[in-house]
């Protein structure tokens, strides 16, 4: 087990270096003026350009630039944004909101997704199965921003059940609708995966044995089948946090949430490259670490998988 974790940690290093190199390259080595837009609509004064190039090591060869950037990154320095605040500070003030949002989304995904999937899987071919299949298909084909707009229109403006936008740090109540919207896509996938996995396992020999032993229907499903069926679903839910990072940019923009997603959106619209690269690198790091944790968890949950 320990060996496996260490090996996975080592494997993540080349991926990390490659991913940050790619993002860094895309932003800083592209033709064009990196200081464009940093002085408003005007051209930047030459002294500022010189300072900027020096500060971000743009006057050095590309690989040296990158290594210096990586060194800064390791020391927790992501540069300063358009307003002169450090990107790390900006991210630190915003992440509690985004985490709250993601928490609501993941909870929603796990609870409703699993319930719908199990219900559909148990009643295979019945009405509820068809209903879940069609509903999830519709959810999957609906982009987050369409769902967000519709949710605002229906639940916020027409029915007035939930607040349409979020102010300040965002309370759980305010973040409820954005969280549901953010989690809906993954929910659909989780429900489908649960259903498929359950249907497959219900045909397994050990389930027949359990039934033959005379165990109650509930025990057969809850103890024997679910435990095995839910493994891939748990992996999926863990991995979906990565997809949510992308979705959060859109969700936070629609609902006016002051989180990491809206910070990224602000960086895009103000063409603030330093802030954009810093925050995206940060999200990719979170994504990689979450995936690592999920992989390790998987081997703990499923004793059949041995990593030695």
């Amino acid at each position: 087990m320990g060996k496996y974790v260490v090996r996975r940690l080592l494997q993540i290093i080349p991926t990390l270096i490659g991913a940050t190199l790619l993002i860094y390259y895309l932003n800083f080595a592209m033709p064009g003026d990196p200081t464009a837009g940093r002085c408003g609509d005007r051209q930047c004064p030459p002294t500022y350009v010189e300072w900027f190039n020096h500060e971000y090591n743009l006057d050095k060869p590309f690989l040296v630039q990158y290594v210096l950037y990586l060194g800064k990154l390791l020391r927790g320095d992501l540069g300063t944004d358009y307003y002169g605040n450090t990107v790390v500070h900006e991210l630190a003030t915003r992440y509690p909101t985004t985490i709250k949002l993601a928490l609501i989304a993941v909870l929603f995904e796990a609870v409703i997704g699993l319930a719908a999937g199990i219900w559909a899987g148990m009643r295979q071919g019945k009405f509820i199965d068809t209903l879940v299949t069609i509903t999830t298909l519709i959810l999957i084909s609906m982009p987050v921003f369409v769902m967000g707009g519709l949710a605002q229109l229906v639940f916020g403006i027409k029915l007035k059940w939930l607040p349409v936008t979020v102010g300040g740090q965002g309370s759980f109540y305010e973040l409820l609708m954005p969280g549901l919207v953010l989690g809906a896509l993954s929910l659909a996938y989780a429900a489908r995966l649960t259903r498929t996995s359950l249907v497959e396992n219900l045909r397994a020999d050990y389930v027949r044995t359990a039934k033959a032993k005379g165990l109650s229907g509930f025990r057969t499903v809850a103890i024997h089948t679910l435990r095995n069926s839910l493994l891939p679903v748990i992996t999926y839910i863990g991995g979906s946090i990565g997809a949510m990072m992308g979705g959060a940019i859109v969700t936070e923009r629609i609902f006016n949430i002051n989180g990491i997603g809206s910070f990224i959106w602000r960086s895009i619209s103000q063409r603030d490259g330093v802030a954009l690269v810093g925050s995206i690198t940060c999200l990719v790091l979170v994504y990689l670490v979450v995936n690592l944790i999920v992989d390790v968890l998987y081997s703990v949950l499923d004793p059949r998988i041995s990593h030695e």
């Binding site: 991926t15 991913a19 993002i23 895309l26 954009l276 994504y287």
Partner: peptide
């Protein structure tokens, strides 16, 4: 495979945003 892993590690939307932003 390792080369593909690098691109796989970046969620599609995030990666595409950076590329489209750069060009």
């Amino acid at each position: 495979s390792r080369f593909a892993d690098i691109f796989f590690a970046i969620p599609l939307l995030l990666g595409a945003i950076v590329v489209m932003y750069s060009i």
